[in-house]
Design a protein around this nucleic acid. Structure first.
Lengths: 342, 342
DNA sequence: CAACTTTTGGCAATCGCTTGCCGCAGTGTT
DNA sequence: AACACTGCGGCAAGCGATTGCCAAAAGTTG
C-alpha cells in the first residue's frame, strides 16, 4: 500500500492464498477454507463463487500450512530396502497407484537394506507423514512394535502382532516348487538363501525344509547371499560344490545371477541343474533360459497395503480393518527346470 | 496446568517442539531455532547445550512449520514418464543418492507418459517443492519454458533454452551402432521408433538418418511404438515386413520385446536379423541373446541433474551454473548383432 | 407470531518455526 | 574516557492454512 514499500522481485510472482480469494469473494478466509475442504459446510452459492475465483486464480493450497494447522500431511511414506530391485518396483507401482487414487502423495525412500537407515527414516518421517508402508522391513520385532505404536504402519512381507501386514504366500508356493522338482526326479535341493535379516528368507527356508522332509528330499541351505544378480556367481559356485541337481533361489535376481554363472562355467540349465527363482520379476521371462519362478500379484500387494493403511487412518470410512492379507502365489514353470540328470 | 484441562489421549504423545527445548534450556525459541539451523549465529556453549537437550528429547523439526516460515521445503520432485521402465530406475537411483547427500528429500512422481498429468503435477508441486527434475518430459517447448519460468527446473533428455539440461548423447552412439552394423555388411536398417512426443526419439532418428545417408545405407523409420516390451511384437512384425537385415530400436524394452517375437516366429538373431537396443537397462545383458545396445552412465545423469539444480537453488555455493551437461555413450556389443545374411 | 432449531459465515487462536530488528555486553580504537 | 564495533540472545511478527466458538440469518413449528 505504502509507496515506500519495495515491490518484491517479480521474478516469481506471489502465489495466491485463501486471503486473496476471500477478498475477491468478499468473505472471510475461514469461509474460503471451508468451501474448499469441507464443501457441505457452506452454502452452495457461496461455494460456487469461491470455487470459481479459486480456479481463475489457479489457486493451489499450501500443503505446508494445511499440514501445520490440521495435523494431517497427506503424505504416505513407502520404505523399500533397495529401489533398484525390480521386485519393489511392482510394489511401488501398486502403492503409487492406490495412494494417488486416495488423494495421498507417495514419498519413496530407499533404506539401503540397512536397519539403522530404516529406523532413522522412520523417526524423521513421523512428523511429516500420515503413515508408513514398510516393505520387507529389516527391523527386529521389538523395533517394529515400537514403530507401529508411534505411527500408523503397514508392513509388507513381514508379519508382526502390532501392525497390519500384507504377506505374499511364498512358502505356499515353495511346496509347489518342491513337488515340481520331485516330479522331475530330483531328490536333493539347495536353497540359496537371502539376507539374514530378511524375515521372508527365514520363512521360505522353513517352508522348504519342512516340505522337503515330508517328501524325503534332502534340503541344504547356502548363504546368506545379497539379493543381487552379482551375488549369483558365489551362490552358483557353492551350489555346484554340493552336487545337487536342483536349487531354489531366495529371489529372481539371485537366480538370474546364478544362471549366468552356470553358463560361464559350462553347466547346462536345466540339463545339469534345475533352478527355481522367486518373485517373477521383470526379466524372469526373458532371461536365458526363462526362469521357472514363484509368481504373485505383487502390484496388488502394494495396493492392498495402501487400503489397509487407509482403514487405519480413517476407521469409520475404512470399514473393518483387516490385520492380515495374504496374496496368493503360484509356480510359473518356464525353461529353467527339467528332469534330474541321472 | 489447569486441573480441568483434559489430557490429550496419550496414544500418541505430543512431539517435542523448539519451545520445549527453549524452556528446558532457559533460552528463547529463536535461539533454539538458530542453534539448530544456523549454528554459527549462536555461542558455542549455548549451542551445545541446546543440541544436547534436542538429542535427548529426540527432537525432529517439523518440516511443515519450517517450510511455512522459511519458504523452503527441502523437497525436490523427480518426474518420470513411467516408474516401471528400468531406464528410469537408474535415474531415480542417481537423483535419490545425490539429493540425500545434499540434504533434500526426493518426491517421485509417475506422470504416466501423459502431458496433462505432467502439467498438472508441475502446478501442484510448485508450492510444495523447491525444484523439479523432469526426466524425458513430454511437454512442448512452450509449456516447458513456462514451467521453467515458474520454478527451478532441470530436464533430463530434453533440451530447452530455458532450463539446464542433462543430455545423454545417444545420437553420438547411434553413429557407432551404424558403423558396427556396416562393418558386418548390413546395407539397410530399420529404426523402430518410440513415442511421437518423445524428444529423444526425434533426435535419435535424425542422427540415424543422417549417419545412414553419409554411409550410403538405407534407413527406414517404423512406428511409433510404445516403449514397452509388449509393443515389441508389432515392431518385430513390421520390421520383418521390410526385409532389412538390421534394426535399431528406440529403447531396450522395445528391443527385448522384439527379440521375443523373433524367437516366436523362428527368426534367428543375429543370423537372420541383427538388433541394437538403446539404454543398456537392467536385463539387456541377460536376455537371449544378450542385447547389443547403447550404454551410458544413466545413474550419473541423475546425479548431475541434481547438482545442476542445486547450483540453481543456491547460486553462491553452487558455483558456475552449467546450462548443459552431456553424458557420454558407447556401443556395448553383445550377441544380438552379427554379419548380415547373404 | 413467538420460540426454537438449523444454516451459514466471521472472529481469532493456533500449528511450529524463521527471521528482521533491537539492545545489551564485551572488546578494541583513538 | 568516549566511541564504534561485533557477538549473542530476545521480542514479536509473520508464513497460510484449520477450526472451535459464537452470532446473525433463515427456516420450522405449534
Amino acid at each position: 500500500m505504502d509507496a515506500m514499500t519495495p515491490e518484491p522481485p517479480s521474478s516469481a510472482e506471489r502465489m495466491p492464498t485463501i486471503r486473496d480469494i476471500a477478498e475477491m469473494a468478499g468473505v472471510a478466509t475461514s469461509t474460503v477454507s471451508r468451501a474448499l475442504s469441507n464443501p457441505q459446510r457452506v452454502n452452495a452459492r457461496t461455494r460456487e463463487k469461491i470455487e470459481r475465483i479459486a480456479a481463475q486464480l489457479h489457486y493451489v493450497p499450501s500443503t505446508q500450512a494445511r499440514g501445520l494447522s490440521s495435523g494431517r500431511t497427506g503424505v504416505i511414506a513407502v520404505l523399500v530396502p533397495d529401489i533398484t530391485n525390480p521386485f519393489y518396483f511392482d510394489i511401488i507401482r501398486g502403492t503409487q497407484y492406490q495412494l494417488k487414487a486416495s488423494g495421498y502423495t507417495q514419498l519413496l525412500v530407499d533404506t539401503e537394506e540397512a536397519t539403522d537407515v530404516e529406523l532413522d527414516t522412520l523417526r524423521k518421517l513421523r512428523r511429516s507423514t500420515d503413515g508408513v508402508i514398510l516393505a520387507a522391513s529389516r527391523l527386529t520385532d521389538q523395533q517394529l512394535t515400537d514403530a507401529a505404536s508411534r505411527q500408523p504402519l503397514v508392513t509388507i512381507n513381514r508379519a508382526t502382532a502390532e501392525a497390519p501386514t500384507v504377506l505374499i504366500d511364498t512358502p505356499g508356493a515353495v511346496v509347489q516348487a518342491l513337488e515340481h522338482l520331485a516330479s522331475f526326479g530330483h531328490r536333493s535341493v539347495v536353497y540359496a538363501g537371502g539376507p539374514t535379516s530378511s524375515w521372508s528368507n527365514h520363512r521360505r527356508w522353513k517352508a522348504i525344509e519342512e516340505a522337503a522332509a515330508k517328501r524325503g528330499m534332502a534340503a541344504t541351505r547356502l548363504g546368506p547371499y545379497a539379493p543381487t544378480a552379482f551375488s549369483g556367481a558365489a551362490a552358483a559356485d557353492a551350489t555346484l560344490g554340493t552336487g545337487v541337481t536342483a536349487v531354489i533361489a531366495f529371489n529372481d535376481l539371485l537366480a538370474i545371477g546364478m544362471l549366468e554363472r552356470f553358463r560361464e562355467r559350462g553347466v547346462r540349465v536345466p540339463e545339469d541343474i534345475s533352478i527355481v527363482g522367486c518373485d517373477d520379476i521383470f526379466g524372469a521371462d526373458f532371461c536365458n533360459p526363462p526362469l521357472t519362478t514363484i509368481s504373485s500379484p505383487i502390484e496388488q500387494a502394494g495396493r492392498v497395503a495402501v487400503s489397509m493403511l487407509m482403514a487405519q487412518l480413517d476407521p469409520i470410512r475404512g470399514g473393518t480393518p483387516r490385520k492380515l492379507a495374504v496374496m496368493p502365489t503360484h509356480l510359473k514353470v518356464r525353461a529353467s527346470t527339467g528332469p534330474a540328470r541321472a
